[in-house]
Design a protein around this nucleic acid. Sequence first.
RNA 1: UGCCCGAUAGUAUAAUGGUAGUACGACAGAUUUUGGUUCUGUUUGUCUAGGUUCGAAUCCUGGUCGGGCAACCA
Length: 557
Amino acid sequence: MIANEEKSLNFLEEILEEDIRANKNGGAVLTRFPPEPNGYLHIGHAKSICLNFGIAQRYNGKTNLRFDDTNPVTEDTEYVESIKEDIKWLGFEWANEFYASDYFDTLYDFAVKLIEKGLAYVDDSSAEEIARLKGTPTEPGQPSVYRSRSVEENLRLFAEMKAGNYADGEKVLRAKIDLASPNMHMRDPIMYRIKHAHHHRTGDKWCIYPMYDFAHGQSDAIEHITHSICTLEFIPHRPLYDWFIEKLEIFPSKQYEFARLNLNYTVTSKRKLLQLVNEGFVSGWDDPRMPTISALRRRGYTPASIRDFCDRIGIAKRENVIDVSLLEFCIREDLNKTAWRRMAVLDPVKLVITNYPEDKTEVLHGENNPEAEDGDGYREIPFSRELWIEREDFMEHPPKKFFRLGPGLMVRLKHAYIIKCEDFVKDEHDMVTEIRATYIPESKSGQDTSGIHVKGTIHWVSVPHAKTAEIRLYDRLFSVEDPGSEERDFKEYINPQSLNVLPAAYIEPDLEHAANRGYQFIRKGYFTLDKDSQPGKLVFNRTVTLKDTWAKETKKA
RNA sequence: UGCCCGAUAGUAUAAUGGUAGUACGACAGAUUUUGGUUCUGUUUGUCUAGGUUCGAAUCCUGGUCGGGCAACCA
């Protein structure tokens, strides 16, 4: 008997189950995914999306998508659209599409309420002055001279701020909490600042905008979010989050924190990604070398593989750096089961089968996927006397365990015959230009009566039938594990080999009708059609290589 | 030298006072018409010093190390 093992819970699921058991909020679970629309979503967001949507699914709850759009200067509808597309593509549905900016009126009323309670005041100090008076972690702050303004004056000034009577930076609204708090966030945090800026949704209606701390928790409360899950750096904000909710007497949403994803050989800071885009180090947010969701999609990653990845990395509170090889494992695992096998020769050299008739063509059959019981269907592959094979599959002086071609060596041509290398031709630069072989007629794939067993099988494409395609080989964007370590500018670590374009590789003719799906080019890796493809000019992106133990072997030697 | 969070194989993540397990990686072997896949095996771990307890990765105390906090960013 196999034990009925249940997957262990992460700490958030334990909290959820505890809350449900205690019938907190009537057992309801409502989470939210709260991106700021100032950049594209990346793999780190995918972790948060899978967490927030996944946990709600698991506990019969729902998830709101809420754009945290309280800073009009950096935000844009382009980002709103890409974010929605990425979440849908990952396979999640939000219950409601909300915007923090939907709540600007309510938030304003909340602020007035705090002023009336004597818990907020308008401060005319400059940014520098406020920072100075805040003190340091080891020294308490000092009150500004405006801290003792009357409720009436504060009410009037705040209304005037809203009315546009003041310039940017002239005044702010601050909560009146505790200037000596050991938690810097409780030292009279700013609630509202003046920004005469056009907002992507509210236009020019407002010239004052709430800060994150005076928008996020309140928005959660308005929506009755039961579990507001965010990353570790917001832990010190939690007392403030609770303070506003308590003083405002609104729905008691609770904040919980988990450790964000870090991936080695990768940067995920939005600021850095924006730099890569703006300074032309990559072709855009969806350049297949980027860690963005849109880039992973273009590269050929599947939603299932990314969800699987997010599942495997787990949820905890300790800082972590995930090996990018785990992401690669996840996409290989998925594509191995679903990708159609095809043959493509990336670095060609000609092979002539001297005992095969010059005018003969055979049509061979190859299964789409050997992992599937029925092969997932078959495609036709033309075979003829002249073939393109991979240059690296031939060696003039092969070492002992080289199971490919060399003088006198035998291999099987995938889905076709066993051949024996008889001769080869070199040009004046010592470059092999042609390999000559004989084939064994009774060794035909599927009806082999030759009794010969060979160790190696190589892929090929018939010369007269071959089509060409541009193939883009991607490698990791950075050559060091932690490009974000502030020792040097992260752009100095960019891998110069991260993109290698093969303008005209040979592909088997069936690929001319390639669909928008994953393909495995046998022995070479997983590939997918790029959006740059035109009719008659196909472009393939390499999603990921195959595991290559031979390459590892040769590297060791 | 203020406050907060954390510390389990190389990397992640379980064990909720009672046998330290799983995945990825690495290594070795078997199978293979992809040097892929699959299968089998091996390797490596509780930061440290005390305490509580019959028994501690788990609870307590001190230390060490890592991370965060002093934006009119989120």
